[in-house]
Design a protein around this nucleic acid. Structure first.
Length: 934
RNA sequence: GCGGGUAUGGCGGAAUUGGUAGACGCGCUAGACUUAGGAUCUAGUGCCGCAAGGCGUGGGGGUUCGACUCCCUUUACCCGCACCA
């Protein structure tokens, strides 16, 4: 017994990570080790993490993965002499907290405070080198003041297409009063009316503002939304399932609502082009390209038979224009009402309301072909023939012009539609059968098409556009799928708009005024369906101007679109960030975060950055130079198998012999897939009397599956328990050791002992049996120098390609070799400690300190690789026969090709592998390999 | 349907420009020290085979003296987008 106690004590004396880690975390905090200042003499490096939303659930082992990688990189860059900006903060506005407030009545601000404090504790225990002096929090009024400020700037700007940049709206007003808008090249809504300077001066202030709204980069517009009456809110597409809200199952309808939008579409081309200048993964760039969805074609006008209106269609295939024999409009199209003939009105009305009940997603899933002929006709611009006008939900109001020229022979959807409604299919393709399906192949000759006959698609497109433009019936046009970003949320926990209304005209508050979130009694919409902020009375607002304040709030991505700039100058009261500071810190050099933000956050921040650049407020127009998306860490869920209608659970091996139900079991009561039966019985009342059918070893073996970590799957691994058991250094190393940063990988704690042993092995190398630190002052021997420099070289190379997992193995190999060499040389150990420090900073500080250093290892000098130490006198050549490696032979590195050939031909084993044949060819790659072909 | 990615031992993974496939770690096997081991140390460990040898990077084909790596083709899985005119 006594023996046991002493052993336990000795073991804890060995490498006492708990004590070491606590001590150094305190040291860093007390000494503000990682607080950073601008320093013109030092080269800057900016390493950023996607800041977390502080949820109530806290961190699981997947969260810190990216933070560990970025921290390693930041620490590495510091050792390399860079002035490193490595901040952290919280994206603290958001729905879950608001939902929690609705349920409990607890103010989101309070819940947010608790959550951020817990996050901070969990982050601190992992030893990150964040500069917490620079923390930002999007829900903090001193932060969102500037989010509001940027919004107000967007409101006061329009996009000038001549200068190709955002310009103050006051310029536009000047143009209007001097020359109207007829000769203006400014980005605006398609339905903007043309007016002269005289018109402008005669406009009422409402009319003037209506016009300006068509140009402003932040503007009010009627937008189709998924409105849920019962919840009193607008829902995102994925919150709607089968026409009802996912939460609660309440009915949802399409409704036109006045909402703030941001004119991101004005930046579409630049957002596309900018992708060429940044180092992001191909998949993310491709997703953004997809999202922007550029297509080049022509917009073509079809006159209508009776009315004097024209229908504009967009097409990428003007070459097929002679195949057009009907038009299809989106049911929501503006002209539908005017073009519907009297005896079709009821049918059209019924169709439109049936479409309105379907969400956009439903419409996409729907495969039934529906539509209505609205009774009137358009005139084909070339053949002058009468063609029918239809409406159908396969045409989307939000894409292109909301109308298509139907070419049934050349477009499968048009073909299906024509086929379904028995409309004629005109064939314009030579020797192609279109009676079974449309021909979408462009490599065919066109016929039956007047001036386009005998051309292929490519030539015909060119010709068609030429003719369309000279005839004045249309224009070359670039179309984007990207839509303007809806910027209003009918919620409470978000940034209030710096907007008030007077006579229903929106005005921004003065720059000196900041509106903050008013206190309200409940976090729910009003009984009339107004957003929660409408509950605030006039004197609940810190500022109240005009007739009413804006009661929507901004969306979650508002604050995160520019936070990387605020870190540069987090306490500035006079600007969102001084130009001086943003000039110094400049772009984010390395940005690490999850791929789930591929298009949302990453596109919007690019947009805001370009806007701020246009305004001359920053001097770069792409925010994140290099982006890395860390892969998700998946959980490993365990299952038990209950035999149906019984309380008996059968072990995995025998589960197929019975009819069973597979149930999740908490991974905390399972060890190596073996279930702890007692704990299982205690875990739930219904399991109290559970019976078991065990396997041959007398154990209950659980099934397992690898899937996303979530509470409901009982497979959450928190870092806390692991830090306590193995220490933060071990956890950091282990998360990196799991595999490539960008890959998805299952979490499994089995291997964690391995990296823990590595740290202990290092500790034991420099401590004697009494756990006394000991290194030798002698000159290092050649072998150890070789080991060290091999390691330095590989680490430099690996970090340069963000291969963090291989660095861990390299460090392990280094310690294995130094241990074999019994190397406790002070110089070698010092350098190794520095190499290790970005990964395991606590143990590194401890050893560094014991080595006699008084300052933190964080600013030590990264050892420099010296080729000299790796020189080899002998090379161990692998010798292959017909490409198959047979044996190794040690030869001098100085040997010539001839000498190598000779040595090998004389080698005893060679004859055996030649099987009596003569070699045809001997390939010698110096210092690499020898291959004998026979 | 379109776009992007992945596939290597029992497991996580390594192999950077075509040059010894399986580094490193887990697990497993045997042994040592131990009253004990979920500690430590030593040796072994891709598969088949007693061996010689053969086979091996999802499948098939090709280029090459030599292919996990390059080309063609195919399968499975993951991610994103989609009646996009």
């Amino acid at each position: 017994m006594l023996n046991f106690a002493i052993r336990g004590l000795l073991k804890s004396m060995e490498y006492n990570f708990l004590d070491i880690e606590k001590r150094w975390q305190k040291f860093w905090k007390d000494n503000k080790t990682f607080a950073v200042k601008e320093n013109a003499n030092k080269q800057k490096y900016y390493v950023l993490d996607m800041f977390p939303y502080p949820s109530g659930a806290g961190l699981h082992v997947g969260h810190p993965l990216g933070y560990i990688a970025s921290d390693i990189f930041a620490r590495y860059k510091r050792l390399k002499g860079f002035n490193v900006l490595h901040p952290m903060g919280y994206d603290s506005f958001g729905l879950p907290t608001e939902q929690y407030a609705i349920e409990t009545g607890i103010h989101p601000e309070l819940a947010t405070k608790e959550n951020t404090e817990r996050y901070r504790k969990q982050l601190d225990q992992l030893g990150f080198s964040f500069d917490w002096e620079r923390q930002v929090q999007t829900s903090d009024p001193s932060y969102y003041k500037w989010t509001q400020w940027i919004f107000a700037n967007l409101f006061d700007s329009y996009y000038c297409q001549r200068q190709d940049k955002a310009v103050p709206i006051s310029h536009l007003v000047n143009c209007f009063s001097e020359q109207g808008n007829t000769d203006l090249n400014a980005y605006c809504d398609a339905d903007t009316p043309r007016f002269t300077s005289e018109d402008w001066s005669n406009f009422s202030k409402h009319q003037k503002e209506d016009v300006l709204q068509k140009y402003r980069l932040a503007f009010l517009s009627d937008t189709w939304v998924n409105w849920c009456e019962t919840l009193g809110t607008v829902l995102a597409n994925d919150e709607v399932k089968d026409g009802v809200s996912e939460r609660g199952g309440f009915p949802v309808e399409q409704r036109l609502m006045k909402q703030w939008s941001l004119r991101i579409t004005a930046f579409a081309e630049r957002l596309l082009a900018g992708l060429e200048t940044i180092q992001w993964s191909d998949s993310i760039k491709e997703m953004q390209r997809n999202w922007i969805g550029k297509s080049e074609g022509v917009s073509l006008f079809f006159k209508t038979e009776k009315n004097d209106c024209e229908i504009e269609v967009f097409t990428t295939r003007p070459d097929t224009v002679f195949g057009v024999n009907f038009l299809v409009l989106a049911p929501e199209h503006d002209l539908v009402r005017a073009l519907t003939v009297d005896n079709k009105k009821d049918e059209v009305k019924a169709y439109i309301s049936s479409v309105k009940l379907k969400s956009e997603r439903d419409r996409q899933v729907e495969k039934n072909i529906t539509g209505v002929f609205i009774g009137s006709y358009a005139i084909h611009p070339f053949t002058k023939e009468k063609i029918q006008i239809w409406i159908s939900d396969y045409v989307l109001a939000g894409y292109g012009t909301g109308a298509v020229m139907a070419v049934p022979c050349g477009d499968q959807r048009d073909w299906d539609f024509a086929n379904h409604f028995d409309i004629e299919i005109i064939n314009i393709f030579k020797d192609i059968d279109v009676s079974k399906e449309a021909n979408e192949d462009k490599n065919v000759e066109i016929t039956n098409s007047d001036f386009l006959n005998n051309l292929n698609a490519k030539e015909a497109i060119k010709e068609a556009i030429k003719k369309i433009e000279t005839n004045g019936i249309g224009k070359r046009k670039v179309n984007y799928r990207l839509r303007d970003a809806v910027f209003s949320r009918q919620r409470y926990w978000g940034e209030p708009f710096p907007i008030y209304y007077q006579d229903d005209i929106p005005y921004t508050l003065a720059e000196t005024e900041q509106v903050t979130l008013p206190k309200i009694d409940k976090y729910l919409p009003t009984s009339t369906g107004e957003p929660p902020l409408a509950r605030a009375n006039k004197n609940d607002w810190n500022i109240f101007k005009g007739d009413r304040m804006e009661t929507n709030v901004m969306p979650g991505w508002a604050g995160s679109s520019w936070y990387f700039l605020r870190y540069m100058d987090p306490k500035n009261d006079n600007a969102f960030c001084s130009k001086e500071k943003s000039d110094y810190w400049n772009q984010v050099d390395l940005y690490i975060g999850g791929a789930e933000h591929a298009v949302g956050h990453l596109l919007y921040s690019r947009f805001w950055t370009k806007f701020l650049y246009d305004k001359g407020l920053i001097s770069f127009d792409e925010p994140f130079k290099r982006l890395i998306n860390q892969g998700m860490i998946l959980g490993r869920s365990n299952f038990v198998y209950r035999i149906n209608q019984t309380n008996t659970f059968v072990t995995f091996e025998k589960s197929t012999d019975y009819k069973t139900t597979k149930l999740y079991v908490d991974i905390n009561i399972v060890d190596n897939d073996i279930l702890d039966l007692n704990q299982f019985k205690q875990s739930k009342e219904e399991y109290k009397d559970a019976e078991f059918i065990l396997n041959e070893d007398g154990n209950y073996k659980c099934g397992y599956e690898t899937e996303k970590m979530s509470k409901s799957k009982y497979n959450i691994q928190t870092p806390d328990a692991l830090v306590e058991k193995f220490g933060a250094d071990t956890l950091r190393l282990y998360e990196m050791f799991l595999g490539p940063l960008e890959q998805f990988k299952p979490w499994d704690t089995k291997g964690i002992n391995g990296v823990h042993n590595f740290l202990r092995k290092f500790w034991r190398l420099v401590h004697d049996s009494e756990n006394k630190f000991f290194v030798s002052e002698e000159k290092p021997d050649a072998n150890s120098l070789k080991t060290l420099h091999k390691t330095i070289k590989k680490i430099d190379e690996d970090i340069a390609r963000y291969s963090f997992n291989t660095v861990v193995s390299t460090l392990m190999i280094c310690i294995n070799e130094l241990s074999d060499q019994k190397c406790i040389n002070k110089e070698i150990i010092s350098d190794f400690t520095i190499l290790l420090s970005p990964y395991a900073p606590h143990i590194a500080e401890e050893i560094w300190n014991k080595l006699g250093n008084e300052t933190s290892i964080s600013f030590a000098k990264f050892p420099v690789y010296n080729e000299m130490y790796l020189k080899e006198d002998d090379i161990n050549y692998p010798v292959s026969f017909n490409g198959k490696m047979r044996f190794n032979i040690i030869l001098s590195s100085e040997s010539s090709k001839e000498e190598i050939e000779k040595a090998i031909m004389n080698y005893e084993k060679t004859a055996h592998y030649l099987q009596g044949k003569e070699p045809k060819k001997i390939i010698v790659v110096p210092k690499r390999i020898v291959n004998i072909v026979f």
